[in-house]
Design a protein around this nucleic acid. Sequence first.
DNA 1: TAATTATATGGAAACGATTTGTATGTTATT
DNA 2: AATAACATACAAATCGTTTCCATATAATTA
Lengths: 338, 338
Amino acid sequence: MSTLGIKDIAKLAGVSPATVSRVLNTPELISAKTLVRVQNIIDEHGYIPNRLGTSLRTKKSGNIVAIIPHITKPVNAGIIKSIEQEAQKFGYSVLLGDTQGLRERELHYGSMVRNGQADGILLFGSHLPFAIKTDIPLEKQLPPIVNANEMVPEVNINKIFIDNEAAAMEAMQHLFDLGHTRIAAVAGPSDIPSSDERISGYKKALVRQGIELDENLIVQGDYTLHSGVDMAYYLLSLESKPTAIFAFSDDMAIGIMQVLHKNGVVVPDDISVMGFDDINYAEFVRPSLTTVHQPLEEIGQACANLLIRKIKNPDLPAEKIQLDYTLRIRESTGPAAK
Amino acid sequence: MSTLGIKDIAKLAGVSPATVSRVLNTPELISAKTLVRVQNIIDEHGYIPNRLGTSLRTKKSGNIVAIIPHITKPVNAGIIKSIEQEAQKFGYSVLLGDTQGLRERELHYGSMVRNGQADGILLFGSHLPFAIKTDIPLEKQLPPIVNANEMVPEVNINKIFIDNEAAAMEAMQHLFDLGHTRIAAVAGPSDIPSSDERISGYKKALVRQGIELDENLIVQGDYTLHSGVDMAYYLLSLESKPTAIFAFSDDMAIGIMQVLHKNGVVVPDDISVMGFDDINYAEFVRPSLTTVHQPLEEIGQACANLLIRKIKNPDLPAEKIQLDYTLRIRESTGPAAK
DNA sequence: TAATTATATGGAAACGATTTGTATGTTATT
DNA sequence: AATAACATACAAATCGTTTCCATATAATTA
């Protein structure tokens, strides 16, 4: 375990530490023969430069940290994969930080860029992961950071997003087209921006269609399977039941469908169910789930790419990039029951 | 962005850097009045010690890296959560490394402990994430490391595992009890130890039951939803179809059930399906999935706890900890069709 | 009161790399 | 043969901490 350092390698190769460093970083400045000699010693001993020393000196860690509320949710699968690929293309490593929805963990991962362990932040939550001072302009305080999916309220930040409101409206239009007029919305937590935006789309769609809003039909879950279950029981308990349910996450939609099935309600014949996200299980549940597809790979790639550009050039102004959603119509939605 | 260092704080407080360091790390050695004075300056400026400097000096990073083949698979959800919780309890941070199954990424994350960015490794893959020399005893070369779920062949390593062979046998026994004799196995990739162990359990169970092995009934997938689909089509194409299918992952089982349903095969009336893992979707698919439950939270906690103990005391001998699986019987298995 | 011991702080050397002059050795030019 | 030009390699400073050692002050004891 006694790992040897650049000085040891230098001694073994009969050169100075500076030369070893150049062999590693700027080999074109080194003569062919010393290059191979030193490189051989390096290989032979499996020398790996201590990243702490390097980072300390260069003030670059080569890491980016992705702050993700619940990393194992299937909706993150495509995002993470593409982030890693894009980052690797530019020589960056991705450190994944799972916050479990805890503010403390957000702050913890957020501090990694200030304490030198990372060069930039990919933020998938809706809170800035550090304290900001009100007496100094925000831009002066921000490290390189890109915000995706769940938007922070702050304006001057790089953002990658889809138009949640428009997506919700389009989903509603699909249900209107099938003849539904009594449509329940199962929203996410109230402090989650994407949920608010989708509620807004839900309401606008009703207005446009000339349908009066029934507040009883808007319920709040937390995007999880189990909250879908709870909300389904509530909706089934209504005296005047909806003919369609628009859940703002696939997980909730799946939970809802299970309860409906257990209670003898046939989807979509009795009630249609619509999800949001298009996780990979959406087409494998029964009936397969109609949902709003998010371009997850694109989101991940765009995030990483943008962040790295900001790291290399911190003074660029904030960019907002909007990506396209798609309606994926499957079996869980059908004509409204009479 | 010009972040100030310990010297700046020292200057502002009119003390030496050593004193500031003590305020942060050993406040009991500092007089009450300087303590509050220095602490105020620290708070006022939001000073955060540079972790690189600290780690370089102390030779401890306070990080552990978890190397995970596919982090977003639902089976990892409970594991990751409990790892984080346990690590935090001891003041360690978890860096999640998703390898996407690539050797290169394994090596990359594996090098983090040698280059100072992490103090130990939680390994969920079946390859050691670094090169080992054959002329030196393994124990001399190993950093603190704990291997879980998918076992590396090397013997002298800390391991957390369930008895996959016994679990597979018990699953088979459940199917035997229902009257099945023609049971297909849908295995994982051939280089994945857990799959081999389950195959071994599958075969032993057949022997014990006095049923002749039919090699045509053992097929190989890759643990994913889509490979479940492919394998299901293959099994349906057999002239003599199985009455039960034992998939070595829930994802494959879910893929299989979808194909069966599409082709008018009723589960479990026509064919029973059994999974492995007990991911959270298992009880939400239709029919809900009978499967082998792995104690994911326990695994995560045991891993992190063991690793941290090894970090603090590297000379402890390797430990092997076996945890208990449980059969979860749901709707996807039933009496064998005539 | 003087001598001794605790207590609190400062100075400076590490930790492991990179990088900026600077020095050395070679080759080319006059 | 002397100088210029160039290619290499070195020594030392540096990044931001912690910690050993020394010192100054305060507290205790004789």
